[in-house]
Write a protein that binds this DNA or RNA. Structure first.
Length: 424
RNA sequence: GGAGAGGUGGCUGAGUGGCUGAAAGCGACGGUUUGCUAAACCGUUGUACGGACUAAUCCCCGUACCCCGGGUUCGAAUCCCGGCCUCUCCGCCA
């Protein structure tokens, strides 16, 4: 959510921001609505003042004077009703529009229309050279009997899968490695609800825009989250934290649910784009300080890179361009891990900073050293998401004989297994 | 799922129609006292929006908020209706 005062004062900045993000929103119309609403509520407030005064008078008066005062009150009440109706009519329209205004991108965000115009910042690790014909993760998964896509589809439809035996062990080992690395860095582990209230979906900015992407439990007005970012960021909503307690650094592992509406036919092969997966997510709630946010953004980016380094996977970091940014994001860095079968880097992580955007919607604030209350800044990044990360893990660690070597960092989480072989 | 109780400020907890934005206590903050700390004493202590004045997001004035939304009333924290949530007992259950 954008500060309406800022929107009034610097509407050009927000109009430009929306254009850069390729998001359609009529800001002049919104400001017009705002002015009307403001006039009505100002007058309503004056009427209320008069009503309150009349109420006090009535308590003191008697006889004719009292009757007159009560008659006066009736007039005020009628006018208040008119204005109140106007406000109840305008306010929902205003709120609805306000929820659509995007946070302008940071100046350091490259201009561009979509993900093809993201800018590569750096490349880490060596690309593999196979001296045999490498298999893709689906072929490996089948021949090793550790991934069962047909039965996943049987159970839950397209874009579903079953991890089996060493495949499932690998999945949990990776998640556990990620959790342990983050715990070592002092992040607090949370276990959170994945079925949440609508207000939480709105608060984190996934509703109303992303409603199509969420599975809804409509009977109970609850939504399945697409990421633990949602419940974790909302964890302190409606609270006022102390500045001395910031930044709050959290991680949570959760199952993530995504409808992938509109992605029909896209990335249909294998474990890349699936409806249900597990992810360790990091969320930082920081003070309202742009420089601090930039530093924290770098920190959460490094945290994820450290996981990929532990897994010894090659990756690159890209600075996501304006047209590929979400509504609330000020800046986003994606980490893309090398996926041999795709002969390309594929997105495995996404690190965003939001400034106050989510905090305003969530009413997430803190009291500064100076005693003033301000909105927090929020940030988040994937620590690891599996099974998408199994694509590079399996494909990079495959051997000529069709086996897969278990990455060293994972062995202690896999009962010291060193190699995944076909069951014989 | 059934029965009951209840949701008041950072916390505990008064308040059943106007004198209550809200007693009292605790906590926190400022001050006095004090080798230091503690204790004692004095004072301050919600949020949002609007107005006026400004260097000021400080003061000042006003409005709203005692879970949320409606209603009754000249007037609602207080009465009525609906919803949400919490607790207790029973039932069911991973």
């Amino acid at each position: 959510m954008i500060d309406i005062k800022a929107l009034r004062a610097e509407s050009e900045k927000y109009i430009r921001g929306a254009r850069l993000k390729r998001i359609n929103v009529d800001i002049p119309a919104l400001l017009d609505l705002d002015a009307k609403l403001m006039n009505a509520s100002r007058e309503l407030q004056e009427i209320r003042t008069a009503q309150n005064q009349a109420g006090k008078d009535i308590a003191q008066l008697a006889g004719d004077q009292k009757k007159q005062a009560i008659a006066k009150m009736a007039e005020l009440k009628a006018r208040a009703k008119q204005l109140g109706d106007m406000v109840t009519q305008l306010e929902p329209q205003f709120n609805e529009q306000m929820l659509l205004v995007p946070q302008p991108p940071a100046p350091e965000v490259p201009e561009g229309k979509d993900d093809t115009e993201n800018v590569q910042l750096r490349v880490e690790g060596e690309l593999p050279k196979f001296d045999f014909e490498p298999k893709d993760h689906v072929q490996l998964g089948e021949s090793l009997d550790i991934i069962d896509i047909p039965r996943g589809v049987k159970l839950a439809g397209s874009r579903n899968y079953v991890l089996k035996g060493a495949g499932a062990m690998l999945h949990y080992a990776i998640l556990r490695l990620a959790v342990d690395q983050m715990l070592a860095k002092g992040y607090t582990l949370l276990n959170v609800p994945v079925l949440v209230n609508e207000s939480v979906m709105y608060g984190t900015g996934y509703f109303p825009t992303g409603r199509e992407q969420a599975y809804l439990a409509e009977r109970d007005s609850l939504s399945l989250v697409g990421t633990a970012e949602v419940p974790v960021t909302a964890y302190h909503s409606d609270e006022i934290l102390e500045e001395s307690q910031l930044p709050r650094k959290y991680i949570a592992m959760s199952t993530c649910f995504r409808r992938e509406a509109g992605a029909a036919g896209k990335d249909t092969y294998g474990l890349y784009r699936i409806h249900i997966f597990d992810k360790v997510e990091q969320v930082v709630i920081g003070p309202n300080d742009e420089q601090r946010s930039i530093e924290l953004h770098q920190e959460i980016l490094r945290n994820s890179e450290d996981v990929l380094k532990a897994l010894e996977l090659p990756y690159r970091v890209v600075n996501v361009c304006s047209g590929d940014l979400g509504q609330g994001q000020v800046q986003k860095f994606d980490i893309e891990t090398w996926m041999p079968s795709r002969k390309n880097y594929g997105e495995t992580h996404s690190a965003s900073r939001f400034h106050e955007f989510q905090a305003r919607r969530l009413n997430l604030r803190y009291r500064g050293q100076d005693g003033k209350v301000r909105y927090c800044h929020t940030l988040n990044n994937t620590v690891i998401a599996s099974p998408r990360i199994l694509i590079p893990v399996l494909e990079m660690y495959q051997n000529a004989d069709g086996t897969v070597t278990v990455p060293k960092a994972l062995r202690k989480y896999m009962n010291e297994m060193t190699i995944i072989k076909p069951a014989s």
